[in-house]
Simulated scan of single mutants.
Amino acid sequence: MMGAGAIKQDVKAMILTGLAGLVAGACSIAIGEFGSVYSQLDIEVAQPKRDKKRGGGGGQNKEEEKEGRPSPLKAATASAIAFTVGAMVPLLGAPFIRN
């Protein structure tokens, strides 16, 4: 927002830039978090299969295993919301901008 304000003294351009940064950042963070947690989930799903092949028995039943697994969608949503809340801080000052 400050960069846009330095180039062009237009309040609407600054607010639009802030909103664009908010949306782009939230999407970027959410996609990265989804990929990270999905990788972790994939590893956790594959581990019991590896243990079974090696002959080690896992004492947990399937319901207990599913409860402890991470949710990529929940993690992505939480990260996007957290980023959005943080990115709203500069936008809260927008009403005080004067030409």
Rank of each mutant, 00 (worst) to 15 (best):
E67A: 11
E33D: 11
M14F: 04
M1E: 10
M88A: 15
V85M: 11
E63F: 05
A75T: 03
R98E: 07
A6P: 00
T84Q: 05
V89E: 05
Q9V: 06
M14Y: 02
V45Y: 04
I97V: 13
K66A: 13
E33P: 00
G57P: 00
Y38L: 13
A20N: 12
V45A: 06
K74I: 09
T77D: 03
L92N: 01
A24L: 15
Q9I: 04
G86Y: 03
A4W: 01
S36V: 06
N61Q: 05
L92R: 02
V11K: 15
I29Q: 14
L16A: 15
L22Q: 12
I7C: 05
P90K: 13
P70G: 08
Q9T: 07
E67F: 06
F96W: 07
G25E: 08
A30S: 15
G35Y: 02
D42F: 05
A30R: 15
G25A: 13
G25M: 10
I97Q: 07
I15F: 09
V23I: 15
R50E: 08
P48C: 08
A80F: 03
G5F: 10
K53G: 01
I15C: 09
S39Q: 10
S79M: 11
C27M: 14
A26W: 07
A24F: 11
P72C: 07
V89P: 03
A46P: 00
V23R: 08
A76W: 02
A82G: 14
A20Y: 03
A46H: 04
A20P: 00
G93L: 13
V11N: 12
E67V: 10
G68H: 06
A75L: 05
Q9W: 03
L73Y: 00
A76D: 01
G59L: 09
Q47W: 05
A78M: 10
I7W: 02
A78Y: 02
D42K: 15
E67H: 06
G93T: 11
A26P: 05
P72R: 11
V37S: 02
F34V: 09
D42S: 15
A46G: 02
G35A: 13
I81D: 01
R50I: 11
Q47D: 09
Q47L: 14
K74A: 14
G35W: 01
E67G: 01
L41C: 07
L92T: 09
A78F: 06
L19C: 12
A6C: 08
T17W: 03
N61M: 06
A26E: 09
A20I: 12
G55L: 06
E63Y: 02
A78Q: 07
A6R: 14
I29H: 04
L41I: 04
I31L: 15
A87T: 03
E63C: 03
E65P: 01
G93K: 09
